[in-house]
Write a protein that binds this DNA or RNA. Sequence first.
DNA 1: TTGACAGCTTACCAAGTGGTAAGTTACCTT
DNA 2: AAGGTAACTTACCACTTGGTAAGCTGTCAA
Lengths: 197, 197
Amino acid sequence: MTQMTNAAPAVDRYLEIAERQFAETGFHGVSLAAIAKEAGVSKQALLHFFGTKEKLYGAVLKRLSDKLCAEVERAGAGGPAAGLVAYFEGLAKNSLERQAEARLVVRALLDTEETARFWPMKPYLEALTELARKTPKWQTASLDEIRAELFQLIGAIQYLTISQTALTGMYGEEDRQAIEERFAGSISGAIRVFVEA
Amino acid sequence: MTQMTNAAPAVDRYLEIAERQFAETGFHGVSLAAIAKEAGVSKQALLHFFGTKEKLYGAVLKRLSDKLCAEVERAGAGGPAAGLVAYFEGLAKNSLERQAEARLVVRALLDTEETARFWPMKPYLEALTELARKTPKWQTASLDEIRAELFQLIGAIQYLTISQTALTGMYGEEDRQAIEERFAGSISGAIRVFVEA
DNA sequence: TTGACAGCTTACCAAGTGGTAAGTTACCTT
DNA sequence: AAGGTAACTTACCACTTGGTAAGCTGTCAA
C-alpha cells in the first residue's frame, strides 16, 4: 500500500513560517524563495507539498481558520455566555502576541482576489455567531443582528491588534502600552454588553 | 523663471487610479505597468512624476490623509460634538462607497515595511483625537484614553467597511445589506456614547 | 533484491518587475 | 527666433517571479 508519509511535522513547520511571512507582508509581498530560505529548503520543496503559491496561501488560511474555530469551540465548552466573554477578553488582552493571526484574518477579508470563492474565515465567524446564538440574549435575534453586533466587537479588537506596530511607530512604546491597557479596560464593558442582557 | 507646469490634473488622475489599485491589491499586488496601462500612459510617465513606486505609494497615502484631515476639519466646523457624530455617522452609512479609503487606511496600518518612518495616517488620527478633546466629555481626559476609545469606534466601522466584499461573498448581497443596516443602527448608539457625557 | 514512491535537489525558463538612458515634442520665456 | 524645460515616449536592462522537468536518495512493501 502507500508508504509511511512522515512529512507532517515538516509541512507544519513550512506552514508556520509561511503564516508569519504572509501575515507580515501579504500574499503578494512574500515569495516562495523567501519562505524556502527561512525554512532552509529549496522552494521546490514547497511546491512539492502545496502545488502552487496560492494553494500554500490557502493552506495557511485554512490552518488558521481551523485553529481559531477550535479555540472558539474550546471556549464555548463551559457555557456560551461565559465562553464568549473569556474568548474576547483573551483576544483583547493578548493583542501583541496575536498580531500575526489578526493580520492574516484582516488580510483574508481584505484580499478578495486570492481568497474569493474560498472565504477561509467564514467558519470562524460562523462559530462565533453560533456561540452567540446560544446565549439567552441572542436566542430570539436574527442572524443579521448577531453578525452586525459581532463585527462591531471583533472589528474593534482586531483593528487595534493590527495597529500595534503602527501605534508604537507613531507614539512610542510607552504610549502604545497605555492605549492598549485603556482599550482592554473599556472593551471589557462592550464585551459584557454584547453577551449579557 | 520656472515654466508653467500644468500637469497637476494629470498627476491627480494618476493618483486616483493608483489609489484604487493599491486599495484593492496592496502595494506589492500592484505593478507600475498596471497603473500606467489603466491611465493610458507609459509607466515611465509615472516614474517621471513620482520617482519610484514607493514614492508613488507614499503620494497616494499622503493625498488620502490630507483628504481625510480636511473632511474631519470640515465636520468639526459646526462644533466638536456634533461634528464627530456627523462624521462617524457618515462613515458608517456610506461604507460601500468608502471601501477604497478604508482599505488603504487599514493597509497603511498593516504594512509596517513600506510606510514605516512615515506613518501617513497619523495626522488623520490626530485630527480626530483633537476634535474629541474639544468636547466637554473628553476635555479632562488623557490622550491615551481618547485614543483607546477612538480606536474602538473607527476600528469597528472600518472593519465592517473593508469586509463588505467578503460579506457579500460569504452571505450574499441581501444579507450583506441587512448586516450593514443593523450595524449602522447599532453603531449610532456607540457614537453617541463616545461623544456625549 | 527489487521496485515504487515520498521527499527532496539542481537546472532551467518565460514572463514580469522596478528602474535607467536617451530621445522627442510642445509650449513658454526671453 | 532661440533656448530651456515639462511631459512625456521607446528601448533597454538586471533581477526576481512562480512554475516545470528531471534526477537523486533513503525507506518500506512485496
